[in-house]
Simulated scan of single mutants.
Amino acid sequence: MEGEIINRVANSKLKTFDLEDYYPAGSRSEIDISQWLLEGIVLVEARFRESLKNTDFTIYKNHYVAVHCSTDAIIPQWAWMLLQTELSGIAQKVVLGTLVDLETALYVPIIKELDLSSFENLPVIVKGCSNKPVPVAAYMMITERLHGIARSVMYGEACSAVPVYKKSR
């Protein structure tokens, strides 16, 4: 048939990998410990312990929690340990850092354990523009894993992919 439109992408061996498909479901929360510091910068042990004791941590039940300090306070290691103790058995996971650090920490074991054998020697496009907060580090991790497995790795959409890696022949 003359003038027939052929979808070359659908007919190609190109495989799409979408990091959003692996996004762990669950609530995310952030705790800034500066709220328990004197004037937001000085940790007074007795006051800090009392503040933790009087905080209802059950609101973080099954949450992924990022803990950090938004001020330039110097926080001793034991303070983070005390906070972890309060969240243990309540939160699903606790990470020191920002929500981006939390998302990165959630993706590390997921990407590490992925079976990528179905991508062997094939062109792979890592889908961009996710609706969920997929961290840049996750894109780097999947690129590292696909390197040497896939024939090529691209980023974006099939209609406008950016070449990232191509296996040498």
Rank of each mutant, 00 (worst) to 15 (best):
R28C: 00
E30C: 12
A25K: 14
E45W: 12
S27L: 09
Y22T: 07
I31F: 01
S27K: 13
D18R: 10
N7M: 10
Y23P: 04
L19C: 05
S27G: 07
D21I: 00
I41A: 13
K13E: 08
N11Y: 15
Y23F: 15
E20K: 13
K15V: 00
L19V: 12
I5M: 09
Y22H: 13
K15A: 06
S29F: 02
L14C: 09
K15N: 06
G40C: 04
N11D: 11
A10M: 15
V42N: 11
Y22V: 08
T16P: 03
D21T: 08
E45N: 14
Y22A: 06
S27A: 10
A25D: 10
A25R: 13
S29E: 09
R28W: 04
K13T: 06
Y22Q: 06
P24E: 07
K13Y: 08
V42Q: 12
S29C: 05
A25W: 05
I31L: 01
Y22K: 05
I31S: 00
D21C: 05
K15I: 00
G40V: 02
S27D: 09
V44F: 04
E20T: 08
P24Y: 08
G26N: 09
A25T: 10
S29W: 01
T16C: 12
E30T: 15
L14Q: 07
N11E: 11
S34G: 04
N11V: 09
V44L: 05
G26K: 06
V42A: 11
K15S: 07
S29G: 10
Y23D: 02
R8I: 12
G26P: 01
I6C: 03
K15H: 08
V9I: 15
Y22L: 15
I6L: 10
W36N: 02
E39R: 13
G40A: 02
L14G: 02
E39F: 14
I6N: 03
S34L: 03
W36F: 10
Y22S: 06
I33K: 04
Q35H: 14
Q35F: 08
E39A: 10
Q35I: 05
D18K: 05
A25H: 07
L43P: 07
K13S: 06
D32C: 03
S34C: 06
Y23G: 06
Y23V: 06
L14Y: 07
L37F: 03
A10S: 14
S12G: 11
A25N: 11
S27N: 12
R28L: 08
I31M: 01
T16R: 11
Y22W: 14
I6V: 13
E4M: 14
R28K: 13
D32Q: 05
V44R: 13
V44G: 00
I6M: 08
R8Q: 01
Y23I: 08
R28G: 06
S12F: 15
